[in-house]
Structure formats: C-alpha cells, structure tokens
Simulated scan of single mutants.
Amino acid sequence: MSAAGQVVARVGGSVITTVELDERLAAIRNGPLGPRLPKDGTPAGVRLRRWVAQLLASEALLLHEAGHSVPSHDGSHPALDRAARALFDRVTADVMVSEAELFRYYRDNLDLWARPERRTVRQAVRNTRAQAAAVRRDDLGAPETLTRGQLSGPFEDAVFGAAPGAWIGPVRTVFGWHVAVLDGVEQGAVLPYDAVRESIHDDLLSAARGQAFDDWLAGRRAALIHLSPGYEHPGDPSLPDAVHRH
C-alpha cells in the first residue's frame, strides 16, 4: 500500500483513501463506544468499516455541494454542520404544504384533537361505610380535575354519571369508602381546526422538507459518490455478507 493509501471513494473531485478511513475508525474506537465495537477483521468489523466509508463519503458529499473542503479525519470539521444546515435550507426552501393537505390531515386524525370530558370533584376516603356516611362537605379534600381512566370501577361510574353539585357515595373501592361532591363538568370536545392548524402545518412541513432533502440527497449520492469495490453499502445485496438494518 502506498503512503497515500488506496482509494475508498471518489466524491466529485475529492478522493477518500484508506488513510482517512483508518484514522476515522481509530477515532471512533478511541471514543466511549469503542469497547463495544466489533474487532477488525471479523465479519462485523468488515461491515463497520463499510459503514464508516459510507459516513466519510456522505460528509464529503455535503461539503462538496456546499462548496467546502473535505472534512477532517475525526469528523470534527467545523463547517460540516453549517454545510448540512445550509444545504437543507437551500434544497427545501420551496417546499410547501397546501391548505387542503392540512385540513385533510386534521379531518383524518380528529382523535388527536379530542379533549375528554373533565370533572372536578372534592372527595374523602374512610375505612368504613359509616365513617364515610358521616363526612360533611367541609371534610372533603381539595378540588381534583379528573378524566375517565384516572378512577376505577363503581366510583368512576358514579362520578361520571352524576350531575353538577351532586353528592356521590359512599362507594367502596380497594382504597376504602369514598364520598365526593361533583363541583363542575367540562364537556369533551374536538379542538377546532383553526386552533391546531399552526401545529399541523409545522409538523407536516417538517416531514415534507425532510422527505424532499432525503430524495435530493439520494440523487446526489448516485451522481457523485463512486465507491471502490468492497466499500459498497453494507446492505448491498450483491455482497456475500449483506446486512440491511434501519
């Protein structure tokens, strides 16, 4: 092997060699995850080497497209993060989500915007039914706002079946004998479209921009990255030890 190393990949006008690959692998192995990584020469170690080659090629591609030089061997090139962000912003600047898409998402996912009925009660728990029956309103605890599922069994049914102002109980549960007063009821509702439109827009736009950038990046990788034999993606089905995981 020459001092310059063998070619691992060509990215645009740049060349990544085994020297850069070995230095990045050494930096990774010297990091906190080093002891958990597969050993060199093992099948898993060979796949790790291919993964790191993919990483170096992707970094070089981002910097090439952003007009920067090739990154340092340990991945600490100060321009890499800025290049990735600038490229993302540039490539996705024109991505939009239509009003029709926003409303369709709202309509198809109404359960996401549903607010359950909420009931405010003041309650007390005693060891016996007689003790619970002797509880006065002044003995009840502080107001609690509850939704179905926070209570259980007959006591929950009594609370959610009562009218505002009603005295509830005594009702027995595993915790003892409950009595309560229902102070108020906030009916369940579905938040209106206008109330959630902005959050839907942010979520869908973020997803659309991510997909647009992934598609662009895949195209640029196909056009500009040329890997030497043996450094293909570890999941390439042409490899005898192909393993493809996400």
Rank of each mutant, 00 (worst) to 15 (best):
R136E: 14
R122H: 02
Q131H: 09
R126T: 04
R136V: 15
V159A: 03
P170S: 11
L182H: 03
G176R: 02
A124C: 06
A180K: 06
D157G: 06
F160I: 03
F175I: 01
E156P: 06
W177I: 06
A158E: 07
H178R: 15
R129Q: 15
P116M: 00
G153P: 04
I168C: 08
G161T: 12
L151S: 02
T120H: 07
L182G: 02
A114G: 01
F160W: 06
Q131A: 15
R137P: 02
R136L: 14
A124G: 12
A124P: 05
P164I: 08
V171C: 07
Q150K: 13
V125C: 11
L182F: 08
A142N: 06
R129T: 07
R115H: 10
P116R: 09
R122K: 14
A142D: 12
T147W: 01
P154E: 15
R119W: 05
A124H: 07
G169P: 10
P116N: 02
W167A: 11
V159P: 08
W177F: 14
A142S: 14
R118P: 00
W167D: 07
G176D: 08
R115M: 13
E156H: 04
W167V: 07
D139Y: 03
A162Y: 12
G141A: 12
R126M: 13
D139H: 05
I168D: 06
F175P: 00
A133P: 02
E144A: 13
V135F: 04
A132I: 07
E117N: 04
G153I: 00
V174M: 04
V121N: 02
V125Q: 02
P116H: 01
T120P: 04
V125A: 04
G176I: 09
T145Y: 08
T147F: 00
T147V: 15
P164E: 03
A166L: 04
